[in-house]
């Protein structure tokens, strides 16, 4: 059987929120090590990879690996009923035909429980190679969210270029062009406010702003976001979840025809 108890149930709720605009049906894979998700959007343009280590949980038992096939709109409806400070418990039998969810709150003494029917989902898995990227940028996730939101008024495509000058986001449309440049900045005492740029060689790639905006739904999970780019490769946008896991998005670039 599978049983997992997460004191800060809100983390799981935020993970669901970070994915649900990209995919509808998803398998959560449970192993003795972690809960993980790998899924693509229906257009096969973006891929989400989530991992939450068993060490994030107060209690974690997984007798044999299983996949929990979930419909995210339904899961999201259930999580709307979870309080901010609730503990979350997940339970499933090895047959994995239903998932028990419990939201407990010691302070108010409430226990809410839900039984969710699981689905068999045929998921296309992709082998994502471990690549050494030419540019790696760490920046405040709120800043990244603001930039990709603001640039939508200029156009549909965002050119992201990493040079010696810094990291530049550009969008061009009918009304003109907008550029936002982020320079390396490690002046603040708070590490989460730092912008660090590791560049081996300059990279310039074009991406759909619509997708970049979907990814910023993960902002509440992490104060920092890490962008990794190499010429002609999908960008990786990673939101680390403390030391316990991550939500990573891969987005295929737009290329010249």
């Amino acid at each position: 059987m599978f049983e997992a108890r997460l004191a800060n149930g809100n983390i799981f709720k935020m993970i669901v929120e970070s994915i649900r605009e990209l995919v509808v049906d998803v398998n959560i894979d449970c192993s003795t090590e972690e809960l993980s998700i790998q899924c693509m959007d229906s257009a096969h343009v973006a891929l989400v990879s989530m991992s939450l280590s068993q060490s994030a949980f107060d209690h974690f038992r997984c007798d044999r690996s299983l996949s929990l096939g979930l419909n995210l709109p339904n899961v999201s409806k259930i999580f709307k009923m979870m309080g901010r400070d609730d503990t979350m418990v997940l339970k499933a039998e090895d047959s994995a035909d239903k998932l028990m969810l419990m939201f407990e709150n010691d302070k108010s003494g409430t226990i809410a429980d839900f039984e969710l029917k699981l689905m068999a989902i045929e998921a296309e898995q992709l082998g994502v190679p471990d690549t050494a990227y030419k540019c790696s940028i760490s920046m405040p996730s709120s800043e990244f969210q603001r930039i990709v939101r603001d640039l939508q008024v200029m156009g549909d495509t965002c050119k992201i270029s990493c040079t010696k000058e810094g990291l530049k986001f550009s969008a061009t449309g009918q009304i003109g062009t907008g550029n936002i440049l982020m320079r390396q900045n490690v002046a603040s005492e708070k590490e989460e406010d730092h912008v660090t740029i590791d560049m081996e060689e300059p990279v310039e790639l074009n991406f759909a702003l619509r997708y970049l905006n979907f990814f910023t739904k993960a902002t509440p999970l992490s104060p920092t976001v890490i962008l990794k780019m190499s010429p002609g490769l999908p960008i990786v946008i990673e939101y680390p979840i403390e030391q316990l896991g991550h939500v990573k998005y891969y987005l295929a670039p737009k290329m010249e025809e």
Binding site: V45, L126, G127, K254
Partner: peptide, 14 residues
């Protein structure tokens, strides 16, 4: 004009 690529051109099926 730019064309949106898909992930299949970059990643393999395992």
């Amino acid at each position: 004009p730019l064309k949106q690529g898909t992930l299949f051109s970059f990643f393999n099926k395992p």
